[in-house]
Design a protein around this nucleic acid. Sequence first.
DNA 1: ATATAGAAAATGAATGTTCATTCTTTTTTA
DNA 2: TAAAAAAGAATGAACATTCATTTTCTATAT
Lengths: 192, 192
Amino acid sequence: MAALQKSIDKRNALIQATIELVNNDGFHATPMSKIAKMASVSPATIYLYFDNKQDLVNKTYIEVKAYYTAYAFETYDESMPVEVGFEVIWKRIAQFKIKESANALFLAQCDNTPMIDEESRQEGIKHLQPLLDLWARGKIEGVIKPLSDYLLYAYAINPLSFLMMAQNRGSVKLTKLELDQAFEAAWSSIKV
Amino acid sequence: MAALQKSIDKRNALIQATIELVNNDGFHATPMSKIAKMASVSPATIYLYFDNKQDLVNKTYIEVKAYYTAYAFETYDESMPVEVGFEVIWKRIAQFKIKESANALFLAQCDNTPMIDEESRQEGIKHLQPLLDLWARGKIEGVIKPLSDYLLYAYAINPLSFLMMAQNRGSVKLTKLELDQAFEAAWSSIKV
DNA sequence: ATATAGAAAATGAATGTTCATTCTTTTTTA
DNA sequence: TAAAAAAGAATGAACATTCATTTTCTATAT
């Protein structure tokens, strides 16, 4: 038990170090030795937990993605009206991008580069299903425009990623007002 | 004259090879030797045209960005009404993402990773000024919502990048209809 | 027009470093 | 005390960059 606990701590430390270093320097500019040092572990120890560098980053991606989607749907309930459901999910996602910005930044980087295996990427997409179901219901009820899921995502959700990245770079500071405005813009673009 | 011409050809070949290889493998997974081979040139020759690898990718970025913005504003004229001007620019940008997808993909990758120097990134942003001016005019005339430029960009322009990347990955195929729908969504989110 | 010397451009082969991964030994755990 | 976990040092490959030569240009003298 104590041993297992210790192992989990080490694994977590490795995952955290990977996120932070990849965020700062990018995947290929991050040596295993640096990850090990930041996790207070020998380089060789990494290979007790992961097969190799690619496996480490794939598993980190999947783990962060799972955390993200759990966070996103935390307060959502399928019995909510479409409009309410969308607002609830959208605001949780926004909150995630703000409060968990390191995690969010890591996901954005993974989604925008060839650093992740296509297989792991697919794995990550599945998790958004409840949102797709909500949109399907919204289309049937005539509340949401009959657009493809990709279009809905591009206008309703993805802009948050862009804003988060800009904020993280220091180019912009998202106020409460701007966040409300962003939600309005998102809703305007997909509502009937 | 003939010599200069030859030099420009080699430089272009190097830039093209950089774009293609970085798109496929990412910056740090692209060795200089591979770039040289694709450009039919010796590795040493790269250093006659660029200081080092970072300089090569910075210059490639700035060059592609300049091409992009020239393309975007090609058919725009400041005397146009705001609504028309926006549509004209938006559609040119869409066209660029579709017809010049390799260039567009390269820019997206640069904008979403730490691979480019902050200085080169700043350099690239300036070029969008005519669009910002158009928005300023639109706000004064009460045609466009009084949102920050980052918000406007996030909802009016950036979704195109997302759609382009998804299309490039084969996840979606943008039809003429979907492009029109995308424009409608973009306009809905920023118009008063 | 042609030949040629000197400069510029280009090359392939080194160089030295960095890094992922493995090996052998030591430490910790049960 | 034996098995598991961890460590640090070693290994070998990959890579950015440089070096020593060779090739190509160009401008001038014949």
